[in-house]
């Protein structure tokens, strides 16, 4: 079929699967950064300090409206200009983590805003501390409506990891490019990369929906 070579396919498959591990690690690490940093960005917009709210809001808008690939270049190359050398992995994780933190902060913000005002008032009437109010009352309720968005961006970050290849992170795309330039065959490596992405992202998306329903049940909210 269209000059598809199965022997070559099986020759490069182990290499691509090994690179898939790197891709998954990059996605996982980037997501971990984004989940935590996103919460910081969301909560920073809820303090009484107007200037802080405004500054964080603009930062989030800026990150969301500029290309990730450009941000990856920026983080990777600007450091050395000022004497800070970042390894490709470090720069990549900073860029992708920050990018998705901006998106997740919007998800969290929506989730927090979806909690009725009465819940804050009841917490105050019971004299709960602000920390207790956030962690025991508000965040558990903000979580279920945030899960769909959080899941989408987990799959999203996974699909954006190929951009890390531009600064030499040895993930799937980088490996496929390397195979292509060694063998002058692009059909198999690029197609396999697509298949691997599909094979991971489609079941993950389905699993996330199951997980979302499970969390709702655990919290007694369905």
């Amino acid at each position: 079929m269209f000059d598809w070579r199965w022997d070559f396919t099986f020759e490069i498959l182990p290499r691509l699967l090994l690179a898939t591990v790197n891709t998954l690690m990059a996605a996982g690490a980037g997501y971990a950064i984004a989940v935590v940093l996103g919460l910081v960005l969301a909560l920073a917009q809820r303090t009484p300090y107007r200037a802080l709210t405004y500054a964080v809001r603009e930062l989030v808008e800026f990150i969301r409206s500029t290309p990730l690939v450009l941000q990856i270049f920026f983080v990777f190359y600007v450091g050395p200009q000022f004497g800070i050398r970042l390894a490709p992995w470090t720069a990549g994780m900073i860029a992708i983590g920050l990018h998705y933190a901006a998106y997740l902060s919007e998800v969290y913000r929506g989730g927090l805003e979806s909690v009725p005002k009465g819940q804050w008032e009841a917490s105050l009437a019971l004299n709960l501390s602000p920390a207790r109010t956030y962690f025991r009352i508000i965040i558990p309720q903000a979580l279920p409506p945030s899960l769909a968005g959080m899941g989408n961006y987990l799959v999203g970050i996974f699909k954006d990891t190929p951009m890390l290849s531009v600064i030499g992170v040895a993930e799937l795309m980088h490996t496929a490019n390397a195979i292509g330039s060694e063998s002058y065959r692009f059909l198999e490596p690029y197609t396999l990369v697509g298949v691997i992405f599909l094979a991971i992202s489609l079941p993950t998306a389905a699993l996330i929906r199951v997980f979302e329903a499970w969390v709702r049940r655990q919290l007694g909210m369905s």
Binding site: D160, P162, A176
Partner: peptide, 22 residues
Amino acid sequence: EIFRGTSLLVQLYWIFFVLPLF
């Protein structure tokens, strides 16, 4: 599902490098 399940970069490379083979 195919276009949302894979990366834009993968699709771009596929269209530019692989499609000519077809």
